[in-house]
């Protein structure tokens, strides 16, 4: 089911929603897109199309830092009901990252109650990508730059407003709050949307033709386990973990304990496998003592482990890691080099 709203009518909807729950929209801060809370100050300049925001969508669901336990008074923050919130303007790659994280945090035997609660309360309104960057490669992961399922609502910007596609009951309920602001999307409007989508899709496909591989990522990793390419890239990698901290699918965390008042708390923070101490154990041995081990490990985790455990790659092709890398390492090129059995000349 698809509806149409003019830009001003869609604002009207946002305002209605924002009276009841926090709404986060995407806006420019200097040259980059970021999520910001929708308020009277941020009602202008909302970006519905363009490209994913800088921060990964997981930040809303798996917080950078979270108190997960207080003791000895057995108290559980997970019991605290979270309020619903709405995210407007996530992209198809962002949505995919949630499916990937869901496997770890809520499909296992033991579920993470904090993630589950935030997922329950987070309403995701996606939008079509219209301005992929050079670094975008979702199509290599068999994704499209527009979402087809898994959203509550999806927005497609066309010249005169937005097309709203309903993806869930929750999305339908949201729209029912402002029926008077909506009309049925016309065939020509839908055609316009589809044309835009085709243009973006072709662009991403085209720019990634040179990165196409002869075999799946997983096979390549298994085959090239001892390749010298790993060592060459580790010589270049600064181990700053920027790629991991901005990755929408990285889920590693560290737990630490601290005293607070009369009691204690357990806190979890994001952690990154590029750090030397990540795999070190009490006795001092380290499963991955060198940078080379750790770089390779990232690829094993994302392209071998995740595929073997969950049947999907832990990568969305969002390109954040490529943009963030201070050493200009492009994951697509790493794979090309692995395939060729050597590193490229531009190192």
């Amino acid at each position: 089911m698809a509806f149409f709203a003019s830009f001003s009518d869609f604002w009207g909807l946002l305002e209605k929603w924002a009276q009841e729950k926090p709404v986060y929209v995407v806006r420019y801060i200097s040259d980059n897109l970021h999520y910001q809370k929708f308020t009277s100050e941020t009602r202008d300049g909302i970006v519905y199309d363009e490209i994913r925001a800088v921060e990964p969508l997981k930040s809303f669901f798996f917080k950078i830092k979270q108190r997960v336990a207080e003791y000895p008074v057995s108290y559980s923050e997970s019991g605290k009901a979270e309020t619903e919130f709405i995210i407007v303007g996530a992209k198809a790659c962002d949505l995919r990252s949630m499916e990937i994280l869901d496997e770890t945090f809520m499909r296992g035997e033991i579920k993470d109650p904090f993630y589950v609660e935030r997922r329950k309360k987070g309403i995701i309104i996606t939008s079509d990508c219209s301005s992929p960057k050079e670094t975008c490669f979702c199509t290599l992961l068999s994704l499209k730059p527009y979402p087809e399922k898994g959203f509550d609502l999806n927005l497609s910007k066309i010249s005169e407003g937005v097309i709203l596609e309903v993806g869930s009951e929750r999305g339908e309920r949201l729209l029912s709050q402002g029926k008077e602001l909506l009309s049925q999307a016309s065939p020509s409007q839908l055609e316009g949307r589809n044309k835009n989508r085709e243009v973006t899709l072709s662009k991403v496909k085209e720019q990634n033709e040179k990165f196409a591989l002869s075999k799946p990522y997983r096979e390549l990793i298994e085959e090239k386990f001892d390749s010298s390419v790993w060592g060459k890239y580790s010589g270049r990698c600064l181990e700053c973990a920027a790629c991991l901290s901005i990755c929408p699918t990285c889920h590693c965390f560290l737990l630490y304990d601290q005293k607070v008042g009369e009691g204690f708390e357990k806190v979890r923070v994001w952690d990154f496998c590029y750090y030397r101490g990540y795999a070190r154990v009490g006795g001092g041995t380290n499963a991955r003592p060198t940078g080379k081990d750790r770089i390779k490990n990232k690829y094993i985790k994302k392209f071998e482990f995740y595929m073997s455990k969950f049947g999907m790659y832990a990568c969305t092709g969002c390109g954040r890691c490529i943009e963030a890398c201070l050493a200009n390492i492009d994951m697509r090129q790493v794979f090309k080099d692995l395939e060729a059995g050597q590193s490229s000349n531009n190192m």
Binding site: G108, H251, L255, A279, R280, V281, G283, A287, F305, S308
Partner: peptide, 24 residues
């Protein structure tokens, strides 16, 4: 195996080797 088990539940990632979580 002794690896850096931290959460114990296959969530935090630390103890993974290859395609196994040592904890879980």
């Amino acid at each position: 195996l002794e690896k850096n088990m931290s959460c114990g539940m296959g969530l935090c990632g630390h103890c993974r080797i290859g395609n196994l979580y040592v904890c879980k």
